[in-house]
Amino acid sequence: MLNLTILLLLAMLMLGGCAQSDVDPLTQKQPPWVKTVALQPDGQPLRVYSGTVRARHEIPLAFQVGGRILARHVDAGQHVTAGQLLFSLDPRDLDQAARAAAAELAATDAALATAASELKRHRQLVARDFISLQALERFELAARDAASRRAAAQAHLAQARNARAYAELRAAQAGVLIEVSGEPGQVISPGEAVAMLAQAGEREIEVFLPDGSQPPATGHVHLANGDAVRLALREVAGAADPVSRSWRARYRVMGMEAGFPLGKVVQVALQDEASETGVLAVPLGALDERSDGARIWRVLEGRAQPVPVEVVALTAEQARIRADLPAGTRIIALGTHLLTPGMPVRAR
């Protein structure tokens, strides 16, 4: 019985030694696995805003003379052609002014004819030495005065006729009436806008930017069909809006004009020069910001090596950086706070 017990103990010891010999001690010292991702060029827009489609030229329409609106021939949203009649004023006072100017011209014509006749007769008397030259000069001046009065009457008549023509407001250019405020019976003054004409042709996107921000130079707007249309900055307001403290910017729509409906609200993605020159996008977990400054890590010959970077901006999921690395370079994406320079790692 004792011998059997001894044999069993020896067999157990031999089996335990074999099990331990099967475990390779090197497996306990293998370098850790690290997840890597490729550096991507930053293709994300710098800022996203809501913009409004506007015409490049928006012309306030107004009468050059005052009066009471007699008729309105158009409605808001209507397409108009060049020369189309839009509004008419009550012309009675203007007609009377034209008749008065015509009567004034007729009176000056008669006065000029009388002065010319008197001058001719007195020149004949001077030739016969019946009157002196001093008397003749008085009639010459009277004839000049009559001619000047006639010229003034002609100008008054031309002004009256022009004013009568101004009683009809016509479209100077083809376009769309985006606003019509004048109504029949309304009394207006000269220059008071009664409509707003969006001239046909080039379209722009109007965006209001926060105070203190630099307007990006380029951008794009997405269409309903998924296409993107490029934008280019044309102008920025010279002063901030006193109420909202925002800055109005106008972006030209490149390569598309009439296809944009006026007044439509669109989502605008604006992108400055920094988004197009060497800025890369990395996951936030790849950014290591310890005491040595911001850096990312890459794997060289099986070891982790830090690369200093410049942080441009941070989003909820990514960091926008500048680094002396080409796009496509694989970097460590997670656990960078645990790495040390030269640490052995295995890239996954």
Results as ranks from 00 to 15, higher is better:
C18L: 15
Q271F: 14
R54D: 06
L284A: 12
N225V: 09
R203G: 01
E104V: 02
I321M: 04
I69K: 05
L112C: 07
P210N: 10
V187K: 02
A97V: 00
D22V: 12
L61D: 03
I6Y: 06
G66I: 01
A232K: 04
T329Q: 09
A11K: 00
A142I: 01
Y166T: 06
S291C: 03
E257R: 14
L177Y: 06
V207M: 01
P31F: 08
L133H: 10
E204P: 02
I188C: 00
S148N: 09
I59M: 05
A146I: 02
L89W: 00
P184E: 05
A167E: 09
P341Y: 09
R248V: 15
A165P: 12
A294K: 02
R68N: 03
A127R: 12
D90L: 05
L10S: 13
A228V: 12
S291Q: 15
S291P: 05
D90R: 00
S275C: 12
V37E: 13
E301P: 00
F87P: 08
A316Q: 02
G182F: 03
D109S: 08
V207L: 01
R150K: 11
H337A: 14
F260A: 04
R322W: 13
P326K: 04
L262P: 00
A316I: 01
S181D: 13
V299C: 05
F87A: 04
V194I: 02
R54I: 08
V282W: 01
E140W: 09
D75G: 14
A55F: 00
L94W: 00
L141T: 12
Q186R: 02
Q134S: 10
E301L: 03
A107S: 15
D129N: 14
L231R: 03
A62L: 05
I178T: 13
Q173P: 10
A174E: 12
G67N: 01
A224I: 07
S181K: 10
A71L: 13
R150W: 13
T218H: 09
E204N: 01
D227L: 08
L4I: 11
E206M: 11
V53L: 13
V74S: 06
T27S: 07
R295G: 07
A258R: 15
V74Y: 02
I6H: 03
Q267S: 08
L223G: 11
V309R: 13
R72W: 03
L2P: 00
A38W: 08
H337I: 07
Q154A: 11
I205M: 04
S50K: 15
S148I: 14
R295K: 08
R303K: 12
V23C: 03
A193L: 10
V253F: 04
